[in-house]
Design a protein around this nucleic acid. Structure first.
Lengths: 241, 241
DNA sequence: CGGTTGGTTGAGCTGTATCAAAAGATGTGG
DNA sequence: CCACATCTTTTGATACAGCTCAACCAACCG
């Protein structure tokens, strides 16, 4: 029994996020067909290769982006050379929300990416005119706020293995439900990026991965896949903050 | 030479946050007088005593809140009994943005608080009708997203003293510019709350405070005030991630 | 194939969590 | 206004987890 999903014509912008209230539930898709077409008319579709630097922290901001396909990382570099990864961004995520005319994080394509690019002024003007569409954006940004707070909780854990367990369940939730095999989680980012996200060194990530394997929870297949062997125990570890 | 601030009639809801673009700069105040009056008509003003639990994580959500006066903390409790403080909320901040009909964090008044309370349906309906006002909310939530990411960076530091230094500058920026004496930072929350926010134990916060005093950067006056003795060196430490 | 980038493993050190206890605040009721 | 009970903060001693530095290994690329 396969559930029939609402039709999303790719090649057209979309957003994804949990709404405020329950009764518009299931409604992960935030834009109507008409709204997506309106966005298409003011946006431009771009294909970016993996590793492409999209913009740099502090640079003057001109565009807002929405991801159609692929993964982007948002990060900051510090004086001591370390990077904090503020977040990984996926299909139907939004990024490039500037502050006083400047981007606050740097962003870089992790995989090859298809994005929609909007001029800030045009997009904001459209949003102010169309309250329903703007509401979709409001819900979306609120959703990202909650995601950011969840990550903050993740980072508050003391144990490396638990953090990595949380990260894996996080990745599965992002890509997972629809990804072919739920137990095989793609990890297209480097260990160093993962470390920057979960707040560890890459050595500690490596050791934590080893520990999860030895405890029989996960099997890492090459650098870019993790097979979840014991979902129940992994979930328990991830939740046991 | 005292700068004249735009008149904000208290007793009326307000929002604060950095806009996307520069040219509406200085514009920390996001709502016009007319918009605030409209909000007043659908909102209710409440006075809450310090320590009042406003709502609990997971509870069915009915209201959205805006702070007029005072400090609120937003937090989550974990299985092991620890608390993560997701954020402290100040005058003109927004909270209670639910997910699928339920609150995601618990919130509690730190000081006595004056809040405006809006029914979610009424507020969202008003926002959809008034694109300009909704835009103010969009900017506001985006602002909180950035704050959350900054906190995540704070928590990524290894050294306790540096984290506390960042926290103090953070508090000064929130309350500071207008607070009578810029160097005297009020700390109305407990050490335990600070610990939950910066990702340390309360013992470590206490020791970090001692260290900042011994290094001559800050003088703690009672539990609820910190006097910044050497702003330049404190700022340097806070920035030296 | 060498070169480059990314990942693993090991040894030792540092700093924060933890456990325990004392010392300060704060608030209450007599 | 004091004495008591409670809550918060400070201080101390110890253990351990993750960081650092360093070397080695694997994959990927022209």
């Amino acid at each position: 029994m396969k559930k029939i999903l609402p039709f999303i014509s790719h090649q057209v912008p979309a957003l994804r996020g949990a709404p405020f209230l329950a009764h518009n539930a299931g409604g992960a898709i935030l834009l109507t067909d008409r709204q997506r077409q309106q966005l298409t008319s003011i946006g431009m579709r771009l294909r970016l290769p993996a590793r492409k630097l999209i913009y740099r922290e502090g640079a003057p901001a001109q565009w807002i982006f929405a991801i159609d396909e692929g993964i982007v990382k948002s990060y900051r570099e510090h004086a001591n050379g370390k990077r904090t990864v503020a977040g990984f961004l996926f299909s139907r995520d939004l990024f490039g929300l500037a502050e006083r005319g400047h981007y606050v994080n740097s962003t870089q394509a992790v995989t090859a990416v298809e994005v929609y690019r909007f001029a800030i002024e045009e997009l904001t003007a459209l949003l102010k005119r169309d309250g329903e569409m703007q509401f979709a954006f409001l819900v979306k940004v609120t959703h990202e706020l909650r995601q950011s707070q969840r990550r903050a909780i993740l980072v508050n854990r003391r144990d490396a293995a638990g953090r990595l367990a949380m990260f894996l369940t996080f990745m599965r939730n992002q890509l997972g439900p629809d990804a072919a095999d739920g137990a095989r989680v793609p990890l297209p980012m480097t260990r160093s990026d993962i470390a920057g996200f979960v707040g560890l060194t890459l050595e500690s990530v490596s050791r934590a991965a080893k520990e999860l394997e030895q405890r029989g929870l996960v099997k890492f297949e090459g650098r870019s896949f993790a097979r979840i062997v014991d979902p129940a125990r992994l979930a328990r570890l991830a939740a046991a903050v």
